[in-house]
């Protein structure tokens, strides 16, 4: 495997020693936190094995270029209310047609997120919200028009699983909210 090839490498013993010291220093000072590593390992059970995949095809937060001198740093305090972010997830069939569209607006409310979504095609559905940081997944229903609201979503990665009568389950791409 090419992973083991060392391109342009002719490390002197001095270099090796220095690298080993650096490595040890970072391991001491700023390692990947053990609880995060464990969480990533436990995420294995969050695989959506039997669901179709709805890809994130649009994200308003990445669509517009940030003005120079990014104002992102200013949006930090709990009082700041950034504009809602719009996410669009889509399942596309083999012929390239839309099968399912899940559009979600993400608002920051305090330290949490509120998701307001609608489904196309319209219609009732059971929605499951999965988050690695939450002990249990949450469940809400989309109404007859395909509208749903999820309050108090934790900031961090989330995925929605959508279940409807007569259709295969659909899981959205993991997305940081």
């Amino acid at each position: 495997m090419t992973d083991s090839v060392e391109p342009g490498d002719d490390l002197a013993p001095d270099d090796e020693r220095l690298l080993a010291r650096l490595e040890a220093m970072f391991r001491d000072v700023d390692p990947a936190p053990a609880d995060l590593v464990t969480l990533a390992q436990q995420s294995f059970i969050l695989r959506a094995l039997d669901a179709e995949f709805a890809q994130l095809v649009e994200d308003s937060a990445t669509a517009t270029a940030e003005p120079a001198g990014s104002r992102a740093m200013a949006v930090r305090g709990p009082g700041a209310a950034p504009p809602p972010r719009q996410l669009t997830f889509q399942v596309v069939d083999e012929r390239g047609n839309d099968e399912v569209v899940i559009a979600v607006q993400v608002e920051s409310i305090g330290g949490r997120r509120r998701l307001t979504g609608h489904l196309a095609p319209r219609g009732p559905a059971a929605i499951e919200v999965r988050q690695p940081a939450a002990t249990d997944s949450r469940h809400v229903d989309a109404d007859g028009r395909g509208l749903f609201v999820v309050e108090d979503v934790l900031p961090g990665p989330m995925s929605l699983t959508l279940r409807r009568e007569g259709f295969p389950a659909v899981a959205t791409q993991w997305t940081l909210v």
Partner: peptide, 26 residues
């Protein structure tokens, strides 16, 4: 720390999502 934790988790969750396409260790 909080953002690093999010990006870290997100990266691994997306890796799980894409695992079948990532058989090649490279």
């Amino acid at each position: 720390t909080a953002d690093s934790a999010d990006v870290f988790q997100q990266t691994w969750l997306r890796a799980l999502e894409n695992l079948s396409a990532l058989r090649d260790p490279e």
